[in-house]
């Protein structure tokens, strides 16, 4: 049974249709990467699936217990320390105070934050550390589904790689399913079990590809070769780098 099922989702901003007839499912412990050109409505779709945006049409069935989200920006509260930010979902779920400290430290460690960073405010952390705190915040309630909305776009290449490894490890140990929005094909191949390509105009899913192997076991050369193959020989990815920034809402 799928944890998340979207059925014929459609949405429009100010009368302009951005998504139409999107149907997709994410199975238990499966990481699905959703790629598409800029402005094709990928982020909107993630926000609809997570319940932040009400779709104009279509049905959403969520069979998971608890979800979390990592946004494109860290979205940390500037007035709270790293520990306060990571523990925010626990505070919302009214977890007992005594338990929180240990759970926060544990989630922070999994995201690569050291105990001495927990007392710092976001303004004292570097960009990479902030995104780590955002990942720790997503992991802290032990969700069985996580939405990633282009989380590493603003990071440099080396940092991006390290964050991707972090997500792959966390997914393997915490066994969550994920919908990973990205426009970086290399990232999609590295991180996911299945790649869905969104139609350039947002009219349905254009197709899907299953990269061989599972995340974390593929070697770099194969990933790179696969990316080249997708970009040069696969018609499904022909429009992936088309950009019309004027169309962005």
């Amino acid at each position: 049974m799928s944890l998340l099922e979207l059925n014929r989702i459609g949405h429009a901003f100010f009368g302009r249709t951005v998504l139409e007839g999107i149907t997709l499912g994410v199975a238990r412990q499966e990481i699905v990467a959703l790629v598409g050109p800029s402005g094709s409505g990928k982020s909107t779709l993630a926000h609809i699936a997570a319940g932040l945006v009400e779709p104009r049409e279509g049905r959403i069935a969520r069979h998971y217990l608890r979800h979390a989200m990592v946004f494109q920006e860290p979205r940390l509260m500037p007035w709270a320390t790293a520990a306060g930010n990571i523990g925010f979902p626990l505070r919302l779920s009214r977890a007992p105070r005594r338990m929180r400290r240990r759970v926060i430290a544990d989630a922070a460690l999994r995201a690569g934050l050291l105990p001495e960073d927990l007392g710092k405010y976001p303004s004292e952390l570097s960009g990479g550390m902030r995104q780590r705190a955002a990942i720790a915040r997503a992991l802290v309630t032990d969700p069985d589904f996580i939405y990633f909305d282009e989380p590493f776009t603003a990071l440099d290449v080396a940092l991006k790689r390290r964050m991707q490894d972090l997500v792959i490890e966390a997914a393997a140990s915490a066994r969550f399913a994920a919908l990973f929005i990205t426009h970086d094909l290399l990232e999609a191949i590295r991180i996911s079990h299945r790649i869905l390509v969104l139609d350039a105009g947002g009219r349905g899913i254009a197709g899907e590809r299953l990269p061989p192997g599972s995340p974390g076991t593929r070697d770099e050369a194969a990933i790179f070769a696969l990316r080249q193959h997708y970009l040069t020989a696969d018609p499904l990815f022909a429009h992936i780098h088309d950009i019309d920034e004027r169309l962005r809402p």
Partner: peptide, 24 residues
């Protein structure tokens, strides 16, 4: 408003979004 969305994703209703995120 990004923080409002963040709080909503993690399950905060309108009242707690206001108290925990907007009031500050």
């Amino acid at each position: 408003r990004g923080l409002d969305d963040m709080a909503q994703v993690f399950g905060a209703g309108p009242l707690r979004r206001f108290l925990f995120v907007s009031a500050r």
